[in-house]
Simulated scan of single mutants.
Amino acid sequence: MRIALTGTPGTGKTTVSRLLPFRVVNLNDLVRAGISAGFDPERECLEADMDALEEKIKEIERSSREDVLIIEGHFAHHFADEAIVLRLHPNLLRRRLEARGYKESKIRENVEAEAIDLILIEALELCSTVHEIDTTDLSPEEVASIITAIIKKDVKMPPGGIDWLGDPEIDLG
């Protein structure tokens, strides 16, 4: 079973994925390793070759003995039937992206995407099952524990409970 661990860049996907007791495929690692369709100079990042990524994921699945394959990345929901979307308050997201050295236009794009639920909406359109976790006040270990419980079907985290746009304190930049 493929499960996407997705969310806006900076929400904690990679950090949390390292704590999970499941096989994890990091899409950014695959793109950096050559499954790329080129470089986007405006966003200053590699562009993913979606068809080649799908083939690589199938290859990994065939070689795996595990029932669960976590696909981690901000566009992972394009490769799975089930998605776990990590969310983060936009003000904290802004601070994390600034600490990473992102340029202001990229920060604003990602903060706005988080504020309007962009990844969540895409996941709802593409996946049959979607869970949503607000990571704002949780440690990576707590988030990993919730994700493990979701995968084991011990808990459900239905989408729709997070509304950043209702927060007057949001700094969109």
Rank of each mutant, 00 (worst) to 15 (best):
S36Y: 01
L46E: 05
M1P: 11
T8L: 02
D29S: 08
P41L: 13
R87D: 08
P21N: 09
E44W: 04
E61A: 15
D29L: 09
L5S: 11
K56D: 02
M50F: 12
L27F: 07
E142M: 15
I107Q: 09
T15W: 13
L69H: 00
V155M: 15
H78M: 15
V24M: 05
P41T: 10
E54F: 14
A149I: 08
G101R: 00
P159A: 14
R23I: 14
V155N: 11
I121E: 09
P159E: 01
I162C: 09
I57E: 06
A113M: 13
G12S: 12
R43V: 10
D81V: 05
K56S: 11
A99P: 05
N91T: 00
P21M: 04
L86E: 05
S36V: 09
D81P: 05
D29Y: 05
D134N: 10
A83H: 08
V16F: 02
E109N: 10
S17W: 01
S105Q: 10
G166M: 10
E59K: 13
L27D: 02
L69F: 03
P9S: 07
H89V: 04
R87F: 00
F75T: 09
P158K: 02
L92E: 14
R108S: 08
G160E: 03
E72D: 04
S64F: 12
F22V: 02
I3N: 02
E55R: 15
C45L: 05
G160M: 03
D40Q: 04
K58L: 13
G12H: 03
E125G: 04
E72Y: 04
M50Y: 11
V31T: 07
D137S: 15
D49E: 03
H77D: 02
D29R: 05
T8Q: 05
R23F: 15
L92T: 14
K152D: 07
W164F: 09
K106Y: 13
E169M: 04
R95S: 14
L92M: 10
R96W: 08
G10L: 04
D163W: 05
D167M: 02
T6L: 11
R100K: 07
A33G: 11
G173R: 07
L88G: 06
A76M: 04
S145Y: 15
L165R: 09
L5G: 11
E114D: 11
A4C: 10
L120E: 04
L27N: 04
R100T: 11
G101D: 08
D163F: 02
K152Q: 06
R65C: 08
I107S: 01
R94K: 07
R23E: 14
A99I: 12
M50S: 15
L120T: 07
L120P: 03
L30R: 13
